[in-house]
Nucleic acid binder design. Structure first.
Lengths: 167, 167
DNA sequence: CTGCCTGCAAACTCTTTGCACGAAT
DNA sequence: ATTCGTGCAAAGAGTTTGCAGGCAG
């Protein structure tokens, strides 16, 4: 569940941008903020419909609303290079975080990476650029899986890109 | 142009994997290794056809050959989150590199990031994972553009994702 | 009322794939 | 001769968009 305070933040943001406060936008907002894990646009749509069976929210509106939510800093976009975009409620401060993606269970772990910002500006400045954002992502394999045959984590949508040249 | 030595490496790799040494694969190899910058599958196809106007190489074959080239370590895949994959001839050692992407001119700069590997293993181990690879990417804006209105660099395919909520 | 928002479905982009033919071994 | 490789076009996945009607302001 989302806090009423967050909803107000959202409505304020909408009005401030000259956008209308519609039922769909509020429903999508509620569904998004109620997520505990990373989620895709499709998963968000399911959740919206689950939370409000009577409501009519289309896929298109979800896709059109997601950018609004990320620009209002209520959500954070996470691209792990699987072809689909992931989103995450932006609880607390917008700390610099990196992702560790397990290639076995497809789970996304977030870890703080405070040095990233420093690094980005150091390198960018040298190139005559001003850093806007930085992403660090580690792909890894599950040790437990290798030993016991099972991974203790399981969920999340899997990468689209197929294994290559497995021979 | 690619060195004959590299071509031999490629042919050796193919045979070792039980793959056939075809004209198309060699043509694609030549075109790929002749690139100086990052390139997409589409750009590679254009280059293949430009270098060998008589040859018949299809888009499908380019897509099917790219994984072979990356697995033979002759190319490196670079995903900057634009929806299309970029490739780069893997000259010299496979050092840990990060990318700085200029949002104004869409150019991709590569910088060495030696600490990345250490960081990946530190964090992964703590999660019970074994790191496979890591990506660090900095998005930045061009200072020159902001001041003078022009960017000194210009080329490369641009991001697919459109600007959002520009109002 | 006016015009932004929405739903629907079609369009789009990049990439993958099924199938029948052609070529490497 | 066998297979694997290739070309073609269609399929796929995720996301965007044109259009007509609907609802917020």
């Amino acid at each position: 569940m989302s806090t009423p305070a967050a909803l107000e933040t959202f409505e304020r943001f909408l009005r401030q941008k000259g956008l209308r406060v519609t039922g769909q936008r509020k429903a999508i907002f509620e569904a998004a903020l109620s997520q505990k894990e990373h989620f895709t646009a499709e998963q968000l749509l399911e959740r919206v419909r689950a939370l409000d069976p009577g409501g009519r929210v289309s896929r298109a509106t979800v896709y059109r609303t997601l950018p609004v939510l990320t620009e209002s800093a209520l959500l954070r976009e996470v691209d792990i290079g699987t072809g689909e975009m992931f989103y995450m409620p932006n609880v607390g401060k917008v700390a610099q975080v990196a992702q560790v993606v397990c290639l076995d269970c497809d789970r996304i772990f977030e870890i703080s990476a405070p040095f990233m910002e420093w690094y980005g500006s150091t390198v960018s400045t040298r190139l005559g650029l001003t850093p806007v954002s930085q992403r660090l992502q580690v792909s890894a394999r599950c040790d437990t899986l290798k030993r016991t045959g099972t991974c203790r984590y399981r969920d999340q949508a899997g990468p689209r890109r197929k294994a290559r040249l497995t021979g």
